[in-house]
Amino acid sequence: MRRTLAKIVAPRYVVGAVTVLRDSEAAEGEDRLLLLRQPHRGGWGLPAGLLKKREQPVVGAARELFEETGVRVDPADMTAGSPNAIIHVVGVVDTVFFASVPAATTPLRVDGAEVLEARWFPVADLPHLSANTAYLLGRYGIGPQAK
């Protein structure tokens, strides 16, 4: 009875994985990020998605990055953000990983349905971001909500 009651009232979270992908060729002080425009978001966002059952977060981040952009990054080449998990108000926990690729020689491939467009943006001139993306990047000192 106690276990059942605890399951009913305990908060539930959906766990996802996010990749902050930087341009490894950007000049010093000219950091660039890969952002996505998706039909269901109210602004540009990061490559992200939900983890599969028993999937390691870094593997999920690499998988979602590839599925949404066509960019393949080995999970061993991804660095966990610090903090690694960001809790959003809507009951979503994002595990965050950083990686970099050379933008000039890395082709981007989007499906036109889930992701409408993928583009590189200078951190100093980011477009309108979705609320979750602005919050997440701000936690790492990036973008309009940088702390």
Results as ranks from 00 to 15, higher is better:
138 G>Y: 11
88 H>F: 14
76 A>L: 12
126 L>C: 02
93 V>A: 13
80 A>Q: 02
130 S>H: 10
46 L>D: 04
81 G>R: 03
122 P>L: 12
125 D>C: 02
135 Y>I: 01
26 A>V: 02
107 P>L: 08
76 A>R: 15
124 A>C: 03
125 D>I: 00
83 P>C: 05
88 H>Q: 12
48 A>Y: 02
76 A>I: 00
130 S>D: 15
99 A>D: 02
53 K>N: 08
138 G>I: 09
98 F>V: 10
129 L>V: 11
144 P>F: 04
111 D>W: 11
99 A>Y: 05
97 F>G: 07
119 R>G: 07
89 V>K: 15
22 R>P: 00
89 V>W: 06
133 T>A: 13
86 I>L: 10
119 R>P: 01
40 H>Q: 13
92 V>A: 06
21 L>R: 10
12 R>N: 02
90 V>Y: 09
121 F>Y: 14
143 G>S: 08
142 I>H: 09
45 G>K: 00
70 G>R: 09
51 L>H: 00
89 V>N: 12
141 G>H: 11
57 P>F: 01
85 A>V: 14
17 A>I: 00
90 V>I: 05
74 D>L: 06
70 G>E: 08
34 L>D: 02
128 H>Y: 00
22 R>K: 12
8 I>A: 13
67 E>M: 13
92 V>I: 14
48 A>Q: 12
102 P>W: 11
145 Q>W: 14
32 R>K: 14
72 R>I: 06
